[in-house]
């Protein structure tokens, strides 16, 4: 039984990353009908920015310029990095996607891939191929709860991710901008005619998605403190799968699908030999999509005007 619960804890942590990153894919896809394939790399950039911000704050704090408690360093790192990374997202939108807004969707998808490669190799040039160790923001303490080992990091990661998801949900539901986003997701040909500024909303969507990716990047750095320029590729792909599985533009869908994927991966490895993990895990997901092609909370395209 402890074995089972231990894996639940493992899956919750692992699913948090998928869920946070999937939200960025899902929002952009929902509102602009665009696969932002650079998102996994924005996650990587977020992790690196977080690493830089954390190093600066820790140095300032330890050299006595401004002495801050540990939790405040963590909170500041997350907030500042989210803020900075949102500009990366807006820049990507401005340079890579806005000029192609009327181009065929495939062109825009390819742009995303190219921006991704530019971000990866740019990072390689800037910082070199050396692995970077993420500074330890949280002093790890392990709790043994009846044989199940939980660290304070794991709790923090799950709590922060769920908190961010709830905040996003409230934003989309309760604010004027959120309403504009929802309207745009419903129909982005007519809604701009009603006076909703499409460029502002597009920028904002990218900014929010990237900020969430940055948060995911920092949490990832805390859990797996070795950063490399290609860390975003596989996680990005899998989060993309989660976004599709959740249904187009659905926040709840992306969150649930992200956690579901975490659970499937961990539990497949628990039951079957771990060599078969991805094979079995993604066959299960393929099967789900065969029966629910629009994901959990998506609607058929025919309900919409545009493809």
């Amino acid at each position: 039984m402890t074995f089972f619960f231990q894996n639940v804890v493992n899956a919750l942590q692992w699913g948090s990353f998928y869920a946070l990153i999937a939200l960025g894919y899902s929002m952009v896809y929902g509102i602009l009908m665009l696969f932002n394939f650079a998102h996994g790399d924005i996650f990587m950039v977020g992790a690196y920015i977080g690493c830089g911000v954390a190093t600066v704050i820790i140095t300032l704090s330890s050299s006595g310029v401004i002495v801050l408690p540990h939790w405040l360093i963590l909170v500041l790192t997350i907030l500042i990095s989210m803020f900075l990374t949102s500009f990366v997202g807006m820049l990507v939108e401005r340079i890579g996607y806005r000029p192609l807004r009327d181009a065929p969707r495939a062109s825009a998808a390819i742009t995303g891939l190219m921006i991704g490669i530019i971000l990866e190799t740019g990072n390689l040039l800037l910082l070199g191929a050396q692995r970077i160790k993420f500074p330890s923001l949280v002093h790890s303490t392990t709790y043994n709860i009846g044989g199940v080992f939980v660290t304070n990091k794991k709790i923090m990661i799950v709590v922060v991710s769920i908190g961010l998801m709830l905040a996003l949900d409230q934003f989309v539901r309760r604010t004027k901008y959120g309403m504009a986003m929802r309207a745009m997701a419903f129909d982005y040909v007519v809604v701009p005619l009603m006076g909703v500024p499409i460029n502002t909303i597009a920028s904002m969507t990218f900014a929010i998605g990237s900020a969430l990716a940055a948060a995911a990047g920092i949490l990832f750095g805390i859990a797996y403190p070795v950063l490399d320029p290609y860390m975003g590729i596989i996680v990005g792909w899998k989060a993309f799968v989660a976004a599709i599985l959740g249904g187009r533009g659905s926040i709840l869908g992306a969150t649930l699908a992200g956690f579901l994927m975490g659970f499937i991966e961990i539990f497949v490895a628990m039951v079957f030999p771990s060599t078969l993990r991805d094979l079995i895990a993604y066959s299960i997901i393929l099967l789900i999509l065969v029966f629910r092609p629009h994901g959990f909370f998506g609607e058929p395209y025919s309900a919409r005007l545009r493809l």
Binding site: F3, Q6, N7, N10, A11, Q13, W14, F220, A223, Y224, V226, M231, V235, E265, I266, F267, A269, M270, S274, R277
Partner: peptide, 9 residues
Amino acid sequence: ADFSSQLTK
């Protein structure tokens, strides 16, 4: 990056 399920096993 995550080896938790293998290590738990």
